[in-house]
Design a binder for these strands. Structure first.
Lengths: 219, 219, 219, 219
DNA sequence: TATGAATGAGTCTTCATTCAT
DNA sequence: TATGAATGAAGACTCATTCAT
């Protein structure tokens, strides 16, 4: 029994080694340019062994993609606007979640790069998976916005469009920050604060004069 | 002379037919899944003819990509914040350019789809081209923001991060709207107005209380 | 009638232009690497025109090959050992013919290069033509040797092997001299004299002690 | 360890089988006319297997060419005129080396045929390889001639021209004898003796009257 | 379970030749 | 006769996957 457990563990370990190697190569070269031979070379096993653990290159890639999406969902999925009473609460919470997400993705740079470099574009190859993810995400955010609105924290608007704007903003910033290291001199906190501030000022509290006519209040 | 012109025109026409066919197939299947045989079938010519006009599948794809980027640059590239005197001017101008861009891209849905479905992700295949485009775009926007700030139209901030947020927001909205027809019930104008409003409220006019502490004014 | 003649002349001229262009390219690149498109570009005519004058690339190449072989045969074919009375006569005659051949081939370097660079090896492509040429040549030389022997000018030996040795010697020297310009500091005459001398000393006059045991006389 | 050795051997064997098949087809059809599909059919393996052992058709051909050149160099490369004291020694040595070379090439007819049928012509395809070989060979022979001259075994002359004459003579004879079986009734020894005799009588020992006027001394 | 050699389907690309104008 | 665009047959090469050991 011990032995079974051990061998299972060994199997899992081998499986992980292969996946790690694959993440490495996929993140560097993309799905199409990556050869199975490169993955197994990186993992230090033979070509045939690969197929003892995965059904094929595509299946492994999709599994990796799911890993990434799960990671994101796990990180932000539990969040709920339930106990927010003020915009200050909202800001604090958004900052907390944003920081958490950023840190998680930075820990898994390879995984993150695969998503952003190969797949965020919903190429026909893995389109369905990514499309569903974005729809799910947009649904969640739309719902959040609705709740926030009901709780009087944000004003009315097209919450679905707002959701996609938020997704685009956040994804692009993460891409530049985590994948391309494009904001190297800027600390995480500042970046997350920018994002949150932008979201917040783009979603004014009700009873204010319309955002579409901000000049009124400025006079 | 007439003959020369005519034959040149004929050649150009054939070239365009092939490119149109390619845009069609590329936008549906993506670069890798597209076979030259499918392109020529769509264009109604033989396999060999293709190579009389293009060096190969990849070269044609890159040319198409350049076409898209040129289209975008031509549409928004001329814009300058030179004669803006108020935020109202700014809003009007941004709305005008945004509407124009949206219309242009809707006219070239196939072209647009190729960019967004295959390439916005900066996959290693065409990474350099897209990366440069984004850097150029970010540079332009950063500069615009700086000018707007100097002219007293927007407050201080990290203009580079702001630029990328804007790019992300706009690209995602265009993608959903033009490529996936995801906002079908919403008129262009509304969508563009949302984007502009979000940009504007995310970039308050100086002398106001900081956006980062909007609660102050709300109390 | 005049017109017919003129147009025929014009046709001949065009035909020659094409052949000259072909010789140029073939001699530089060899048969396989030469494209019809390159030949017509060099000749300044269109692709289709080519086929008004020749049946195809291969047919033209073979015609060029025949031109070369004819040139050689014309140059040395008339030679006959008929009126030779001494080895001195023989030497003079061989030198004369050798010089003549060298000069003719130098005038047609391109043609010569084609034969030597592409075809002397009797590659399966044009094997038969070249093989026949060599057999004919060997037959001629064998016959000459026999006549010379009958006339008491050279001693007995295997005249066929001797013929091939001569062919090999001469071809390689022409190749180096005319095609590769490998003996640039050495005047024609010297080279031809070397060849003739080598032939003569390799074919002693009868009644001498055998060449196969030259040491005898040297003691 | 045994296993490693065995599998290496198996791999080597397969590699050799492919090469043998290739030599067979190449020698029959030449480089261009040979298809990879024919080679693998001859070897009894699949198309893909070929590329597990060689980079491609051209690479294999060049390797085969190198094999031939190495074989020649190995066979004659060790020869040195060091311990020759007389022309009789010289003759004996030349005969020995010549016979050895002939036998080696006859054992590898296919290899030899490839060199002579496809490549001795220095076609642009593999020109550099062959050209270098001939230059090397000519250099070696020139040097030998110089040494022989210094040792008083052959008289003065243009040793470089002599070297190329020798190369031409020998190559043509080998070609006819080994590749075309053109001297079938003549035993090896006789042919080699003819070559050696021709070389020797074409290079008289110093102190004699000039080779160019052999008749003088003969009277 | 590990190995790695063998497989062969799948596509791009070339270029001599044809033919309508 | 000249043109040059169109043709399509032909073949090299890749690489994910299989399978015997």
């Amino acid at each position: 029994m011990t032995q079974t457990t051990e061998s299972t563990d060994a199997k899992d370990r081998r499986r992980e080694e292969l996946k790690d190697a694959a993440i490495q190569i996929f993140s560097e070269q993309g799905f199409h340019a990556t050869k199975v031979s490169e993955i197994v070379a990186e993992a230090g096993v033979s070509q045939g062994t690969f197929y003892n653990y995965y059904d094929g290159k595509r299946q492994l890639f999709e599994e990796i993609l799911h890993d990434f999406l799960s990671l994101v969902v796990r990180t932000i999925g539990g969040w709920t606007p339930a106990n927010l009473d003020s915009r200050e609460d909202l800001r604090r919470e958004l900052t907390r979640v944003g920081t958490q997400l950023t840190e998680v993705l930075e820990e898994r740079r390879g995984l993150t790069a695969i998503f952003f470099k190969e797949s965020s574009a919903e190429t026909p190859e893995f389109g369905t998976i990514i499309r569903e993810f974005h729809e799910t995400l947009a649904g969640m955010l739309t719902h959040f916005n609705e709740v926030l609105h009901e709780r009087g924290l944000i004003e009315a608007g097209n919450f679905r469009v707002l959701a996609f704007m938020t997704i685009g903003m956040v994804e692009r910033i993460i891409m530049e920050h985590v994948v391309y290291d494009n904001f190297d001199s800027i600390p995480h906190e500042t970046i997350v604060e920018h994002l949150v501030a932008h979201y917040l000022s783009g979603t004014r509290q009700p009873l204010e004069s319309s955002d579409l006519e901000p000049t009124d209040e400025e006079t």
